[in-house]
Amino acid sequence: MIPALETRNLTKRFGSFVATSDVSLSVRPGARHALIGPNGAGKTTLINLLTGVFAANSGQILLGGEDITALPAHARVRRGLSRTFQINQLFADMTPLDSVMLAIGEREGHGRLGWRPLSADRVVADEAAALLERFRLADVMGSATTLLPYGKQRLLEIALAIATRPRVLLLDEPAAGVPEEERHEVLGIVRDLPADVTVVLIEHDMDLVFSFADRISVLVGGALFAEGTVAEISGDARVKAIYLGEDA
């Protein structure tokens, strides 16, 4: 079976600092794959390499068997690789409706210079409305993004990634910073992601990781330290020593 996402000996250096060291990772289609590791382990750097924010120094990235190492970020998205950001990357004074319309419209290739007004695109508008409703954003679709509560912004962050209809979705700490009372909404959305979407999750919340993931990779110092099922990792004494022990 071709892995949904695969890296081969991926390495990234910033000057003399090795942020990602010889990482070979394989994620099977439909997986719920968690990426954990102490702060500074290079989790976000790895995501940035996968999505093309940074260029790798060496190694390969394959999406569904296709080498995407040299592709720019937007081309990777078009091939079905999408992500959310640890720190919200939204369009501050645009509305959730506009943001989602944009994401869907771009997926459908409507974003090239055109004459048709946004409102003429009923199919996209309907899909946007449905998506907003699913993400509990329907009631605020017309207000500026910055005015939304943080939890709602977090939901929009995920909604935008989903709107591109990814085959592989990378979630970078989706629940980070969300107040307790809004947290269950975000986590519910993450749990309810379509089963055919491969999900790679970075998360610090071990409860969430253990309940959500079917496979876990542990990253330490930029290198892959351990990989296995939830049971294997939670039972691994070395992982506990390095990572879990530190957190507890």
Binding site: H74, M94, L102, H110, G111, L113, G114, L118, D121
Partner: peptide
Amino acid sequence: SPYGLSLKAIKRNPTRAAML
């Protein structure tokens, strides 16, 4: 148009725009 919307998005957040 959708194109105009994409321009606004690029201006506001090029990183995210690329990720769409």
